[in-house]
Design a protein around this nucleic acid. Structure first.
Lengths: 200, 200
DNA sequence: AGAACGATACGGAACGTTCCGTTTCGGACG
DNA sequence: CGTCCGAAACGGAACGTTCCGTATCGTTCT
């Protein structure tokens, strides 16, 4: 249907325009209210023609998903594995604390809000977010869950996705609706309770 | 600052315009992709001048929040209390099943997506959603939590909001990201695990 | 009579598309 | 092996369209 933006274009010349566009999108999403992050603004910031953008991405949403994936590629260290000290609750608390810290940074907060908006508006974009952003994170948790399973800490009826949701969903929910403070104390409490929820 | 849309306008003639606008907004949000739910489209559907809308609501977001609150007022039965059979997990499962059923209806699904978009884009709208939509729901759960507390089923360290999040967040998360099927089985599992998470 | 209404017209902004002339790449030809 | 040339993608500019938010009509209800 449209250019898939993954190896679809011949290499060499086009790569520059591609990364410039993605990084302009990241920068603008961090600076402006999302409705002002227009294609025109992104093109202007990137020093790129609008046509060049529309040649690669069908919607702003697809562009933003790729931008986040691009960012995750750059900072591959940030997506590090879940630690494994043998204490599941403590390990999860470490991860949730860092998640909370990241969500407190305005750039990442704005970027994730933008991603959620696009995922809510368009079904195809939602699937893309699931594949490129959420699924990799579930995979990271799944590694830690595997050792916890062999230690008898997780009920067999609880799959990796369900366990992931028990851990992450309350933080996500509170981040999105601001029903209360989103701090380290909350991260610790959620990790502790999620552990109990998934125990056999 | 602006007309607060709550009894601010004199009754009689203006009430018709108000409810026509709110219900047009509900209908369009259920029918069209959200970006097409424009003020112009709402005005046309309601048989109302655009100025009449801008006279009452500052943003489309504020209008949508009021529209949802209006809908909740109409179907006050839907917001019924959490049942109390003495079995907390079973009672929560009943509620979560009905939540899942409502989210499966395209109109309510689209409406809630619209609400989330507005809440993500604008902080003030988010606060309005919290007050007019989320807080009342927390209050409904809190009644059931109170009797569960006196039965020693909920740890004292778990507040009403935290308990609400444990119950609702995984369903909300799965609804928004579609990480898996959102059905009665999932509702039951979440209710069971949330109960264990909040136990003393 | 007066206030609120529906309808209409407006300028501005962003949309998505389509041209233009230029630059760069890679294969063909001498 | 070096040169040339066509294809492709580029940045930039313009297009008509849609929606915004405001202003201004004449109308209608109390």
């Amino acid at each position: 249907m449209e250019n898939d933006s993954r190896d679809g274009a011949p290499p060499g010349r086009s790569e520059r325009a591609r990364t410039a566009t993605l990084e302009a999108a990241l920068a603008l999403a961090a600076e402006l209210p999302y409705p002002q992050v227009t294609i025109e603004a992104i093109a202007a910031r990137a020093g790129v023609g609008k046509a060049t953008i529309y040649r690669r991405w069908p919607h702003r949403g697809a562009l933003m998903v790729d931008a986040v994936a691009h960012r995750n590629d750059r900072a591959a260290t940030a997506g590090g594995a879940v630690p494994d000290t043998g204490d599941l609750a403590a390990d999860l608390a470490v991860v949730l604390r860092s998640v909370v810290d990241e969500l407190a940074r305005p750039e990442w907060d704005a970027l994730l809000r933008a991603l959620c908006v696009e995922a809510l508006v368009d079904t195809a974009t939602r699937a893309r977010v699931l594949d490129l952003v959420v699924a990799p994170q579930i995979a990271l948790f799944a590694e830690r869950f595997a050792t916890a399973r062999s230690a008898g800490r997780i009920d067999d009826a609880v799959g990796d996705t369900e366990a992931f949701e028990l851990v992450v969903a309350p933080v996500f929910h509170r981040w999105q609706l601001r029903t209360g403070p989103l701090d380290h104390a909350y991260a610790d409490a959620v990790a502790r309770r999620a552990c109990r929820a998934m125990a056999p």
